[in-house]
Computed example of a mutant assay.
Amino acid sequence: MKNAIPLFGLLLFFTACNVEIDSPFAGDDQKVYIIKQGQHESNRTIKSFKGDVLGFKASFDESAIYETKREENQADINKLMGFSDCNSHHHENSARFGWRWYNDKLEVHAYCYVNGDRKIEYVTTVALNEMNDYQISIIDNKYVFTVNGASRVEINKNPNCSGDVNYMLFPYFGGDEPAPHDISVAVHTDQ
């Protein structure tokens, strides 16, 4: 229960912000997230997450092609979708897909925090303007990432997880550099 207070504070912080709420789960089940030039976040909507599977489809257009100001930041992983875990902040325990434009390709990665330690593993490369199936499942104390039912990566999760006050994580650019131009990602989910 010790993590409930910080999580409540996080929820209060986000709901107290004066931002437009545009939930992808109200009404239409497809949403185009736009990360504005000079920003990191596409959405500050708070949406709880329950269960052990997050499945969605996503498509990147040409706006996913970018070049960072500092060459070493090109290798940074941006975030697609995922969820916090273990009734804690997402920098403590979470699982989400990451992506980057690297070596003229759009790479997809598994991106997790487990007990505060960041773990990143390459999953696959996807084409622009193509809808792909993404799934994160919790199976036998592992986060299992699959893309199009074939590419698969497993990352061990916190075995001492407790509580089910978790929340969704939405598209985010960075690393330390903000988006160099508007970047849009279309997401279709059944959640």
Rank of each mutant, 00 (worst) to 15 (best):
L11P: 01
N129G: 01
Q135E: 05
Q74G: 08
G116A: 02
Q191R: 13
I5V: 14
N93F: 08
E107L: 05
P171S: 07
L10F: 11
M131H: 02
D164P: 03
T68V: 08
K36W: 05
I65R: 09
D28E: 15
L128D: 06
W99P: 08
S88F: 05
W101Y: 10
N73D: 15
A95Q: 11
Y143G: 03
M168E: 10
I65Q: 15
E107W: 03
R100C: 12
C161I: 03
I77Q: 06
H181P: 13
V147H: 01
K2C: 11
N103S: 10
K57L: 09
N132Y: 00
N103P: 01
N18R: 05
S23Y: 03
K36D: 10
A58K: 05
P178L: 10
D61F: 08
I21P: 00
P171Q: 05
P180R: 06
F173H: 14
N148S: 02
S59E: 15
N156Y: 01
F97H: 01
T45A: 12
K57P: 00
S162C: 06
I183Q: 08
T68I: 05
F8M: 13
E67W: 01
I138Y: 01
P171E: 06
P180L: 06
S48H: 09
C86T: 04
V165S: 00
A186R: 04
V126M: 09
Y111W: 09
G175N: 11
K157W: 00
P159H: 00
K105Y: 02
Y66L: 15
K69L: 13
E130S: 07
N160F: 11
T124P: 03
D104A: 12
Q30K: 12
A127M: 04
F49V: 15
E20R: 02
V144M: 11
P171C: 10
I136G: 03
D61R: 03
H89E: 14
N156M: 09
S162G: 05
H90P: 15
T15F: 04
A75Y: 10
I155Y: 05
V165L: 11
D140A: 03
C161Q: 06
I35M: 10
F83T: 12
D190P: 04
L12A: 13
R118C: 09
S162N: 11
R70E: 15
